[in-house]
Design a protein around this nucleic acid. Structure first.
Ligand code: SF4
Ligand code: SF4
Lengths: 139, 139
DNA sequence: TTTAATTCGGACTATATACTCCGATTATGA
DNA sequence: TCATAATCGGAGTATATAGTCCGAATTAAA
């Protein structure tokens, strides 16, 4: 079902993007995020808690509490979020998983796969959360 | 742990590649394949059975039985094996899993991700099992 | 000060994937 | 014909991921 990243990672991306969209609206409750993104409240909540631990977003308990960005969305790349949740094994390991391989005895696809993997990494690295914001602008 | 394809799919690729290497040695037992590839015998056996069902390899029971290729390795692409085991959802779905998306309202990475996905698909499609054979040649 | 709204954190269940076990079946060859 | 060597197939276990539940801590506001 999941494709390249874990489901949790996909939710984290969606959650961050959503928070960026509402960045001037103060704390957003897990309840509201869950409703709008159509994800289980408890699960998106747990997922966002991981991001809080990493410091990329903030959380506040109590009445009118919720989640909000802790950084400028301009300085947040998609890669940041992926690395927090899934780590960088996706970009290190080989697709084929052949036993005896590596740069010293490369298989026929080695030179082809490297650039593809690098391209997807660069794509995520060069795409900031801010770039996803619709033209609605501030206020 | 797995990266792009399932573990089973990785084993299938390894198994096919191994059989191609030994294509002139008749039936190869699951036992031998498992030993040489360092995979559990029962699991590689089950995995190869899936490939037998699809007709890409053959199997023979009984004494001196085992597995062998059913087609010319020249006409077997890596993509064939991937599709048998994991299907083509990897090449259809989006990495980000955003809810409201698609070509009609593309997100900022849409135009970048498409070509990357297509490149990996083409790479697998254009790489035949035969290309993996070392220069040991026949006999 | 009380109430309501919220995150936090731990423990729990569900599901998919990975992997194992074993008996039945099939074939070879002594 | 009989022993041996192998796949086949079904059922089982293990582990990781996905997702749920709930009570405690926290905070804002009535
Ligand atoms: S040689 Fe490179 S591409 Fe081929 S299996 Fe190894 S790491 Fe992967
Ligand atoms: S618009 Fe394209 S790249 Fe963006 S989330 Fe949707 S399918 Fe993926």
């Amino acid at each position: 079902m999941t494709v390249l990243f874990s489901r949790k990672c996909e939710y984290a991306l969606q959650g961050i993007l959503y928070l960026a969209e509402k960045q001037y609206e103060g704390n957003i409750s897990a309840e509201q995020i869950a409703t709008d993104l159509n994800i289980s409240r408890d699960f998106i909540s747990k997922t966002l808690q991981s991001l809080v631990k990493d410091g990329i977003i903030q959380s506040h308990r109590g009445k009118s509490g919720g989640f909000s960005l802790a950084k400028d969305p301009d300085s947040m790349s998609l890669l940041d979020i992926v690395l927090i949740i899934d780590g960088n094994s996706v970009f290190e390991s080989c697709v084929l998983g052949l036993p005896t391989c590596g740069a010293e005895s490369p298989c026929p696809v080695h030179e082809k796969w490297g650039p593809i993997r690098e391209a997807s990494r660069k794509m995520l690295e060069n795409t900031t959360v801010a770039q996803f914001q619709p033209v609605t602008g501030s206020v």
